[in-house]
């Protein structure tokens, strides 16, 4: 049954979005074989183009978050961190340059735009990156919801780390607590006031990744940041692309007390919501302890934890070990809807 129109769930990062991209954008893009590049068909965090014995990594992202300012950050920080992180997830933590295009709605407050720009600049400094080119457009009142930011980034690396490098026996490490960004946004939208405050984790991860790769020397074999669709989507993609099964140890997934409470009260699983300052690493088992130590030594990786492993059974599926039993982790189709008790 084909639907003729785009629906909101097509943008939510889950199964529906991947199907849309495959059908509309990738179908017919037979560029993967040419000169060994990792292109659109791979649907990785970015593209990698061989440049002699190194790789040029390229990525682009558009940002449409509402609300534009949220606890822990704003769309500006999100735009910069998101692109820096996509490059880092490909194994390219040293950002060469960023671009930023802004489309803003008529009537958008100038003070907000300046605040967003200040955020972007601060995040760039944190990441050691610079916006070298940009564009600005204004659309009429009502033609756009506030503001849309698009950022592109380019970097060079000796080694590309794809989503698809897992083998049975590899260990999965998450760099910190899960569900922070998605639940902070959800709570902000639904006016849930929480003591101790839910805060987005939005942050550039390239320095953290640099440290992990330095400790790992070739044993980090897969990396992905669990943005839209959450950890569930990221693990599904890694399992599918690597043709392995994944067993997720739910009791090991780090959660803040606030995220756990908000998740229970809203009826939303923290595994299904976006993270903007976390990464999942697939690591050869023998190197896991070293990588974990390197992550935990870094301010952004204090809560890093081993959360699962790749297995040969049930390729493409993610099984959750809940501590009391097991279930299949189903890939979310669209945006999770809150079910407030």
């Amino acid at each position: 049954m084909t639907k003729a129109r785009i629906e909101l769930r097509h943008g939510a990062g889950g199964r529906a979005m991947r199907a849309l991209i495959e059908r509309v954008f990738v179908d017919g893009a037979a560029d993967e074989a040419r000169d060994g590049r990792l292109g659109l068909a791979a649907m990785d965090d970015g593209a990698a183009i061989p440049l002699g014995d190194r790789w040029l990594v390229l990525t682009t992202d558009s940002h449409v978050v509402q609300p534009v300012v949220f606890p822990g950050g704003d769309i500006g920080r999100l735009a910069i961190a998101g692109t820096v992180n996509d490059l880092a997830m490909m194994g390219a933590p040293d950002v060469l340059a960023l671009t930023c295009a802004v489309v803003v709605e008529e009537g958008f407050p100038l003070a907000d735009l300046e605040r967003i720009q200040a955020s972007m600049r601060a995040t760039c400094i944190e990441a050691g990156a610079t916006v070298v080119a940009g564009d600005t457009k204004v659309m009429g009142r009502g033609e756009l919801d506030g503001i849309v930011l698009n950022t592109s980034g380019v970097a060079i690396t000796d080694r590309v780390i794809p989503d698809s490098g897992l083998h049975a026996g590899d260990v999965l490490i998450v760099t910190g607590t899960v569900g922070d960004h998605g639940l902070a946004i959800m709570a902000a939208r639904h006016g849930l006031a929480l003591e101790g405050a839910l805060r987005s984790d939005v942050a550039p991860l390239n320095d953290l990744v640099r440290h992990a790769l330095a400790a790992a020397d070739g044993t980090v074999v897969a990396m992905k940041d669990p943005t839209r669709g959450g950890l569930a989507s990221a693990l599904h993609e890694m399992a599918a692309k690597s043709a392995v099964g994944i067993v997720l140890d739910e009791t090991e997934v780090p959660l803040t007390a606030e995220v756990r409470a908000a998740g229970e009260l809203l009826g939303i699983d923290p595994l299904h919501v976006a993270n903007e300052g976390k990464a999942v690493l697939g690591v050869r088992r023998e190197a896991a302890a070293d990588v974990l130590a390197a992550l935990r030594a870094h301010p952004l990786g204090r809560r890093a934890a081993i959360i699962g492993r790749a297995v040969a059974e049930r390729r493409g599926s993610v099984v959750v070990d809940t501590g009391f039993g097991r279930r299949l982790l189903v890939e979310p189709d669209g945006e999770p809807m809150p079910r407030i008790c």
Binding site: D321, T322, F324, G325, R326, R327
Partner: peptide, 10 residues
């Protein structure tokens, strides 16, 4: 039961 995967333990 489903959330905790209890049936796998039965």
């Amino acid at each position: 039961i489903a959330r905790f995967g209890l049936r796998a333990s039965f």
